[in-house]
Write a protein that binds this DNA or RNA. Structure first.
Lengths: 150, 150
DNA sequence: TTTTTATATGTGTAATTACACTTTATGAAA
DNA sequence: TTTCATAAAGTGTAATTACACATATAAAAA
């Protein structure tokens, strides 16, 4: 198999320009850096903020249920809860029906969430302003479409 | 600070439904699983495929240049090249001008890339078909917009 | 009742990501 | 020439992601 320089450049451009996976990962890296930075004042990473907010839903969701809501591998969720649990922001119940364990946000967790909320809203607003309302809405719509494929 | 159940549900829904960072990360996880699976036949992860393809561009890009192209932290790129280098798919030159090191794709790397290309193209086509042409194009357009913010 | 199946969680391992900090080489300025 | 600023890379540490595999519980079927 021969790859001259032209073909290789074409290939590199095709992948970088047209690969949905590459581009969405690149966007995720960028937005994560932005939101991580914005949430520093609450000492939370972007993912941790999402987890904390999602865990407040309903009546203490189980690990599997929470993973399902978040579109996250169950084992990934379990690892991601570790740092939050070590800091006392959440608590995981002992095993219940069919080994099920439930996640609850502690008082400290709720306080942290309260500190993080205005920082997150500000980050959202800044990004929305930078992108413009049309692109902001379109971006969200397309992300929703993709995530519904799961 | 008091959080009753209604407010907490509102919060969870607001973040899960409107957070650009959360949604783009969710989409990245989903597409990564899909592309990782599709590329298994070439024994490449999605990220490794992107790296390999990007490294074929031009005349042996430096580490920093490659990181810039990929919108990836330099240190992240360095770590990600590790597995590819250990498998002999790429080679990194010794330090040159101002410590610069250049990345080249080996013959083995090019062969692996050749095996991966049809798998990647098939994955692209499947996703495009599932999403529909309009959403596929719109999704790409919006990802392009976001990535240009970097 | 025993066996099987479905549900739910935990662990080993490895890749991906990135900040903070350090080290080294080159060029410019004093 | 010495000093200082710039460019490039490497390391420590920790979080995020997920597959493969193991374990434990409860319900259903044989």
């Amino acid at each position: 198999m021969k790859f001259d320089t032209d073909i290789r450049n074409q290939l590199a451009n095709e992948v970088a320009g047209a690969c949905a996976c590459f581009k969405v990962r690149q966007a995720a890296r960028l937005l994560t850096r932005i939101y991580d930075h914005a949430l520093k004042g609450a000492d939370l990473r972007a993912t941790q903020f999402s987890l904390l907010a999602a865990a407040t839903v309903g009546d203490a969701p189980t690990l599997s249920h929470l993973a399902d809501i978040l579109g996250m591998e169950r084992t990934t969720l379990l690892r991601n809860l570790g740092p939050l649990e070590r800091r006392g922001l959440i608590a995981v119940s002992p095993e219940g029906h069919r080994r099920a364990r439930q996640v609850t946000v502690t008082q400290t967790g709720l306080q942290t969430l309260a500190r993080a909320l205005p920082l997150w809203r500000a980050a959202q607003e800044r990004l929305r302003a930078t992108m413009g309302e049309t692109d902001w809405l379109g971006f969200h719509r397309h992300l929703g479409e993709v995530n519904r494929l799961a």
